[in-house]
Amino acid sequence: MWDIDYTLLRGGGVAGNAWKAAFTAVTGQQWRHMPILGGRTDLDICAEVFDVHGVTDCTPERFFATYAERVHADRHLFAEHGSLMPGVRDVLAGLAAHPHVVQTLVTGNIAPVARLKVAAFGLGGVFDAEVGGYGTEDHVRATLVRRSRERAEAKYGEPFEAVVVGDTVADVAGALANDAVAVGVATGSTRAGDLRAAGAHHVLTDLSDTSSVVRLLGGLDRVG
């Protein structure tokens, strides 16, 4: 279960700019508050933004539809202004070679934006997006992990050992709440020590040691 932002890639501010533009388009208000984003779901962020701006006449569904349209229009900018994190492409390919591994996205992003972000870097075919967990499903990230596992087990007809890979303490907490293996990657703003303190079973500086990371995430080396 892969987080996206600062775990797989940097989006170069494209989604953030689309969020602000969509907010003004649907509410008529100028953007004046930037919430803390790391590890949160879009549903949770939306609730805070609406509250701070005093918005009572707009639903998250209406906002997210406009937001997704804005991101779609600017999707070409992800590759221009953003980048993949070190080692990502090779690790994803290495895991894809193992038939017992199913890769999906568990992300605070809404599903259409999640798809656009990974597709911008040619990664859309790597993930079984159908069994993912997305940011419109709940305010709490742990719920996304639970629902993703339930979907995977229903689709494939067998139990899975869930492995959550992310760059924030929220990713770690979501894994631990579901008895999943928590792998922290210190490629975002959260330090490696803070990921360990949050209870991550494994903490990586980045994903550049491809063979070791594939063995860990594929369950070949893991003892935690």
Rank of each mutant, 00 (worst) to 15 (best):
S212L: 14
G133Y: 02
D3K: 02
A114Q: 15
A97N: 07
D221K: 09
G218H: 10
R151N: 14
L43Q: 02
Q103C: 12
L144D: 00
D206G: 01
R32P: 06
A186P: 04
T27A: 06
K117A: 09
V164F: 01
E150N: 02
L216M: 15
V169E: 13
H76Y: 10
D171N: 00
Y134P: 06
Q29C: 15
I4R: 11
T136E: 11
T66P: 08
W19S: 08
A197D: 08
R141E: 02
E158Q: 15
V55E: 09
G87F: 08
T168F: 05
R191G: 09
R146H: 00
H139Y: 08
R40D: 09
S189R: 07
R141C: 00
L207H: 11
R70P: 01
T66V: 14
L37E: 10
L204S: 03
E158T: 12
V172N: 05
L220Y: 07
T56S: 06
A200V: 00
T190F: 12
V185Q: 10
V181H: 07
Y6R: 09
D57E: 12
A111N: 10
P60N: 15
V118Y: 00
R89V: 08
R149H: 05
E130T: 12
D42G: 15
T27K: 00
S212F: 15
